[in-house]
Amino acid sequence: MNQMKNFSKGLIKDNPVLVMLLGLCPALGVTTSAINGLGMGLATTFVLLMSNLVVAIIKDLIPNKVRIPSFIVVIASFVTIVDLVMEAYLPALHSELGLFIPLIVVNCLVLGRAEGFASKNNLPSAVVDGLGMGVGFSLALTMLGAVREILGSGAIFGYNFIEGDLMLAFVLAPGAFIGLGYLIAINRVIKKE
């Protein structure tokens, strides 16, 4: 029951993007379509899960003073794995996400969970937390991507249901900020009830 709560807190109550406001750069940068948001979310989930796992295992071996650099090296290794695997098997998505793949390293969410949670809790909790936060992050990115795709180009997951361009601004930069602003407000309303 406790682990269930640990997992579900990342979805709405402590959603990393909508409540904690972490990892906003990729959340705004790649969500031009729902599928890009989902791809970025899954890549980040993998890194988050693996880095939480490794940090929870090695936390007692690392001297306290060098823990942040060590965590960054762990995270950077998994980001490099994601980068190379994605380039080999999903080249189209890799070029869409571009710069934001190596930038998972500096996603405050990943380092924040490693330092704030995995280094203080046992292995199962750290893994469940990584998974929950990753799913919450993917959920927020996919929703923002879907909103922008529907309003901007009348499509969802690449399936076009309205011909032609709608509000082009939603696919471009301003739509990212405005869409995220409204999603945060909606999440506040849901949380209150």
């Binding site: 406001l21 471009l172 301003p174 990212a176 900020f177 405005i178 602003g181 945060i184």
Partner: peptide
Amino acid sequence: MPAAMIVAGILA
């Protein structure tokens, strides 16, 4: 934050 985001959108 929501209002700040919308301001940022208008700035963009």
